[in-house]
Design a protein around this nucleic acid. Sequence first.
DNA 1: GCAAGGATATCG
DNA 2: GATATCCTTGCA
Length: 186
Amino acid sequence: MEVEAYRGPDDLASHARFGPSKRNAVMFGSPGVAYVYLVYGMYHCLNVVVEAEGRAAAVLIRAVEPLRGIDEMRSARSAVAESRAAGRGKAAAEAAARRVATMPASRLAAGPGLVCAAFSIDTGMTGRDLCDPDADLRLELGDVAAELPVATGPRIGIDYAAEPWLSLPWRFFVPGNQSLSTGSSR
DNA sequence: GCAAGGATATCG
DNA sequence: GATATCCTTGCA
C-alpha cells in the first residue's frame, strides 16, 4: 500500500495549484469522491478527494496489495497490456499478455497507472462517491491496516516543483511491502 | 536510457 | 489555435 498527499493552490505539485478548472473541479468539492486523471497520455491515476468542500486536497493511490479478486485484476491488467502492445504486432501483444499472466499477484497494482488498470478505472470514475457502501468502487475499513507499520518519504515524479518544503515526506507506504511502486525505491 | 501518448494549461 | 508539459510504464 502506498499513497501520496496533495494539497490545494499552495502545493505546486498539485493539479489544484492554479485554482479550479474543468479537470480538477472535484478536488474543490465534497470529500470522499474519486478524482481520476490521465497522465502521460496513457495511464490513469486514482485520487481520493479529502478536506472540506472548497478546500482542494486529494490523496493519490500509488499502489495497493491485491488480497481478493486477483484473477479479475490479472485479466483486467492483461487486457490493457495486450491492447496497448497490439500496435506493435500480434507477437508483442501475446508477449505482453503472457508477462501479466506470469507476474506475482503482489505486482498487479504496484503503481498508480497499474492500480487503475487492475480495477478498470478511467476518467469516467471522476466524481463518484467512494464512501457509498453500495458503490461498485468504494473504500472500506480494513481489519489489518491498523496493525501495519507506516513509513514516509518524499513524493515521486515532482522534481519540477522541487521547492525545499515540497520535499516534505508526504508519501506514505508500508515498508517492505511487496506491492510498492517501482518508483518508491528511489 | 528513452519513446509513446493525449488531455490540459498556458502562451501567442 | 499551437505547443510545452505531465502525480508513468515497459521496452531498448
